[in-house]
Design a binder for these strands. Structure first.
Length: 276
DNA sequence: AACTGGGACAACCGCCAACCC
DNA sequence: AGGGTTGGCGGTTGTCCCAGT
């Protein structure tokens, strides 16, 4: 039965020996989903009878496995998945279902299509057809190498970020302790110790306010830190301005450390909001 | 604007092995 | 043991869409 018979409408499926063929309609999908929900996967040939579908068992199974299954992952194949596909294909060849088992949420059909569109053509384009196998292997190795390089770069970047965040954390902890000690001294001596005003320190104090393990004392310490005009904020004089300055500090963390991305900002915001 | 090539995706086909009676 | 049924798998084809010419 020719696909050309199909029109651009929902009911464009053709009938062959009593079975519908061609693209599935939303209604058919619904019936199939309902069938699997009630009866589970398997016994595909009874779907037609039990679900009222005019599709053969094979078609139903395929539709479910490749499209309707709830655990399917949608969207583009990631570089990591691509590297797995390359690696597995080098090991197993065209055993798509075996490869698919290494990629949860991806179907053999999807992987097969991906391979055909991305790699098969490339290998065909190789200038020397006589040494096709060698060229394939070379190409594969090169691709694997490139993937590995990419992965290594990503891992290094991640590690670097973690190290820098750790350093920042240590610095803040030390700073917080100093502030706590000085505040303790304050209450003892009834006179505030003269900490030099450094804008960057204020910004880091702002970070301390938003830090998850920040104690109430530490937050208080941050709020009592002298402002630009020499007043002590947190005493009710200019709290809105203080909050603004604190947020400036948060947003400027990128500039200071160069390692906190947008995600970190969102994270900090969610943590700091209760204090504002 | 029309044509073309390629990528992405969905679906079908044929073969085969496992299972059941 | 053997024939029929069922499900899984790999290959292939068709359609849609988009970018380039």
């Amino acid at each position: 039965m020719s696909w050309a018979l199909m029109t651009g409408h929902f009911d464009w499926g053709s009938i062959d020996e009593g079975w519908r063929k061609g693209p599935w309609t939303a209604e058919e999908d619904k019936l199939l989903i309902e069938y699997v929900r009630v009866h589970g996967e398997g016994r595909w040939n009874s779907v037609a009878r039990l679900a009222g579908l005019r599709r053969n068992g094979k078609s139903c199974r395929l539709r479910w496995v490749n499209y309707l299954r709830p655990d399917l992952k949608r969207g583009q194949i990631t570089p990591h998945e691509e590297s797995i596909i390359l690696e597995m294909h080098a090991r197993w060849g065209n055993r798509w279902s075996t490869i698919a088992r290494s990629l949860p949420g991806r179907t053999d059909n999807e992987i097969k299509n991906y391979w055909r569109t991305h790699f098969k053509k490339k290998t065909k384009l190789s200038p020397d057809n006589s040494s096709d196998h060698k060229t394939k292997a070379r190409l594969l190795k090169r691709q694997q190498f490139q993937q590995q390089q990419l992965l290594q770069q990503q891992q290094q970047l991640l590690q670097q970020q973690q190290e820098e965040e750790q350093e920042e954390l240590q610095y803040l902890n030390q700073f917080d302790m100093k502030r706590i000690m000085s505040l303790l001294g304050e209450t003892a001596q009834k006179s505030a110790p003269e900490l030099p005003y450094v804008p960057q320190l204020r910004q880091e104090m702002a970070t301390a306010v938003s830090y998850p393990n920040t104690t109430e004392e530490q937050q208080q310490a941050a709020l009592f830190y002298p402002t630009i005009d020499g007043n002590v904020s947190g005493s009710g004089s200019d709290t809105s301005n203080e909050v603004e300055v604190l947020w400036d500090g948060l947003w400027n963390l990128d500039d200071i450390n160069g390692n906190l991305g947008a995600t970190s900002k969102v994270w900090l915001y969610s943590l700091a909001t209760p204090f504002c």
